[in-house]
Nucleic acid binder design. Structure first.
Length: 467
DNA sequence: CTATGGCACGGATT
DNA sequence: AATCCGTGCCATAG
């Protein structure tokens, strides 16, 4: 009986399928937004109480027992535990998630970047300028850069470009410092100015940022020194300062090995969709894979509402019925999304286990198509499920899920290590040969490409001067 | 002449 | 159909 009704809703193909697709491609944070708005607009949708595991106090998934406590004690520890978890609140990126209070709960007021910046700037803006500021903030890309030019804004609002520029300058000083810049260099300059108020800035820093950023990333220090009539050592200092204190992408959570102390505010915008960690953070324990479901408690169709449907006049009945349909559809779709994510992660974690445990080098080349085949799902499903999502690894790094499908990552790290351990600088073709001895066949040109991807400068400029 | 970076083409992936 | 990636060829720098 219940089953039947369920089935009917699911097999209602077109619209439902479409919605599942859409939901699948949403990240945890986006999904939460969606659910919140649905909850507010649809009276038939109800959020019932959260359940906690009596043992570990962790929030329980919508159905079933606690995934962790219910694990049989002596289990084949090779099998990672994969499960869907309600969000325990937003994580800071360091916690295990188990009975731990988040340090920085952003969730209570999850505001988006534009709002966040506007709040800070509002006080310093003239009333008539706020609208413009809001307009500008709404035209930022995910890194916090402008997608429009000041000229365009000026035309649109019938103001002088200089006035617009003033507003932008103001916005640049707000929390993710450098937001609203046109490119990384500009953002970094803004950060320099802001830092200059408190600490000393190495000489030439501004000049280097302005004109030689690409060279810095390639470690072409001597070139820059020559051009600026400075010393290589001095430029090296500047480069260190830059990498330690500046963030080229103010609004982006910095993943990978870019460390950045002054990024307090920006990190909160990228919550991982999946957490992978050792149970209780002990590497001896099995891996736990936790898929964040941004809902506390259980979502369901309000039973009272359903009952009330029978005793209501005709005109409303239609409308109400629609609401109920919509609600149950949404729930169904969310379940499907969760299910797909779970299937995907189960495969992914098993296949890439070495990578998760021991790092980039062990990455297995993998394509979305292969996974799709394994799972019997369509490639596009996998694509959607992967795109935009991020995963937190046991080592606390947050990486895009797409790296699990990066065919070259493992080779790149091998090359990187090879160069790190080299005595005499190896040329690209020498590296190619070495790799071939290890059974890897790859073109010389490709070595060069990987090398530059890793920001390693060419052999002849890599004379053994260790800093 | 050797080592690299740029451009662009073709096949694989999404 | 659109994009990404590995490569080959060629120009350039040293």
């Amino acid at each position: 009986m219940f089953q039947n009704q369920w089935q009917q809703t699911t097999t209602h193909t077109s619209a439902h399928l479409a919605q599942t697709m859409t939901l699948l491609s949403l990240t945890a944070a986006e999904l939460q937004q969606k659910i919140d708005s649905e909850l507010a607009n649809n009276p038939a949708l109800e959020l019932v109480e959260e359940r906690r595991c009596p043992m570990c106090k962790r929030l329980l998934p919508p159905f079933g027992p606690c995934p962790i406590c219910s694990q049989p004690k002596s289990e084949n520890s090779d099998d990672p535990i994969v499960f869907i978890s309600p969000r325990e609140d937003f994580y800071t990126g360091t916690g295990t998630g188990i009975s731990e209070v988040p340090d920085e709960p952003y969730a209570s007021e999850m505001i988006d970047l534009p709002t966040y910046v506007l709040k800070q700037a509002a006080a310093d803006l003239k009333v008539e300028d706020r609208l413009i500021a809001a307009y500008i903030l709404n035209h930022l890309d995910e890194d916090g850069f402008l997608t429009i030019t000041p000229i365009e804004v000026a035309r649109y609002h019938h103001r002088l470009p200089s006035e617009i520029q003033e507003i932008i300058e103001l916005l640049k000083r707000c929390d993710p410092v450098g937001v609203c810049s046109a490119h990384p260099a500009e953002a970094m300059l803004a950060q320099v100015e802001s830092l200059a108020e408190n600490i000393e800035i190495p000489a030439f820093t501004r000049e280097v940022i302005k004109d030689y950023l690409p060279k810095v990333s390639q470690h072409h220090f001597s070139d820059i020194a020559r051009a600026l009539k400075s010393s290589t050592q001095q430029i090296q200092n500047v480069a260190n300062f830059i990498s330690e204190n500046l963030n080229p992408f103010p609004a982006r959570a910095h993943w990978g090995d870019v460390r950045n102390p002054n990024a307090s505010g920006s990190e909160a915008f990228h919550q991982p969709d999946v957490l992978i960690y050792y149970l209780n953070d002990n590497p001896a324990n099995p891996l736990v894979v936790e898929i964040i479901l941004p809902v506390r408690g259980t979502l369901k169709v309000n039973q009272l509402f359903k009952d009330a449907l029978k005793s209501v006049e005709e005109e409303h009945a239609v409308e109400w019925k629609e609401d109920i349909e919509k609600a149950s559809l949404l729930i169904k779709c969310i379940q499907q999304r969760s299910n797909a994510m779970k299937l995907l992660l189960e495969q992914l974690v098993v296949l890439q286990k070495d990578y998760i445990i021991s790092g980039d080098k062990k990455m297995v080349p993998l394509t979305r198509a292969k996974i799709a085949e394994e799972l019997g799902l369509h490639e596009s499903t996998i694509s959607r499920a992967v795109s935009g999502k991020t995963i937190q690894l046991p080592n606390k790094k947050i990486v895009p899920m797409a790296v699990f499908f990066d065919r070259s990552l493992s080779l790149r790290t091998v090359i990187k290590e090879m160069i790190e351990h080299e005595n005499t600088p190896l040329s690209d073709s020498e590296i190619k040969e070495k790799l071939e001895e290890e059974g890897v066949s790859i073109a010389r040109r490709t070595v060069a490409k990987y090398r530059s991807m890793e920001g390693i400068l060419p052999a002849h400029l890599r004379s053994n001067s260790k800093s």
